[in-house]
Design a protein around this nucleic acid. Structure first.
Length: 203
DNA sequence: ACATTAAGTGATT
DNA sequence: AATCACTTAATGT
């Protein structure tokens, strides 16, 4: 069940541990893996599909943080799983997904493995870099850049996306009109073509 | 044909 | 860049 390409990053003893102590679950599109405020019991690693991670603020506004793609894990859970911490974020299946679950009790054992530490540190490093990116573009209001990045992520290799401008605006904490106008710019630059509920990515 | 929903436009802050 | 008010276009019943 664990893809070989991923498995062989780890030493045999660790592979065995992962085989024995973890399990995989399937999520349907839209299913909530981890709700904000819920206790964390497992560390998820996405095997297939995509999770959307967001945080809802006091006013009930949802702030989209990032996607978790295959073979990435949720770094937030590492920071929360010591003790009885509650999740500060919400993770929802963006598409039908397969997720490998590691009981949090195993984390300490896993940390003993060099390859695991390096997997984790790498995950942290990448996420940090990404969040700094977002911070930077928000600070300088480069919404166009964020939109392009979002579209690429959302497409995930495919060239066509089914989504409304409104939904994009919500994820990017912008407004529908602004997204529409930016998309139109991109279209006139030949970077995308637009249709109702549908965006085609071009090279 | 009518209602609903997505997208486009222009003005204002 | 966000919000408002309004229009136009596509889609479902």
């Amino acid at each position: 069940m664990i893809p070989e390409s991923f498995r062989r990053n780890f030493e045999p003893a660790l592979q065995e541990l992962l085989d024995n102590e973890t399990f995989a679950i399937s999520l349907d599109k839209g299913e909530v893996l981890l709700d904000q405020g819920a206790f964390i019991t497992h560390i998820p690693i996405v095997l297939d599909g995509r999770l959307k991670v967001s945080q809802t603020d006091d006013d009930g506004h949802e702030l989209f943080l990032y996607f978790i793609e295959p073979l990435e894990s949720c770094v937030m859970t590492y920071t929360c799983c010591d003790g009885e911490a509650k999740s500060k974020i919400r993770a929802v299946a963006e598409t039908d997904s397969e997720v490998m679950m590691i009981p949090k009790e195993k984390l300490e054992t896993l940390m003993g493995f060099r390859t695991w530490r390096s997997f984790m540190m790498n995950a942290f490093r990448e996420r940090f870099a990404e969040l700094i990116d977002v911070l930077n573009s928000i600070a300088f209001t480069q919404l166009d850049q964020r939109l392009i990045k979002y579209l690429k992520e959302k497409a995930g290799g495919q060239s066509s996306i089914s989504i409304t401008h409104q939904a994009i605006a919500e994820d990017l904490n912008s407004s529908r009109e602004v997204i529409s106008r930016l998309l139109k710019q991109l279209e006139s630059q030949g970077k995308v073509s637009l249709g109702r509920n549908h965006i085609e990515l071009k090279k």
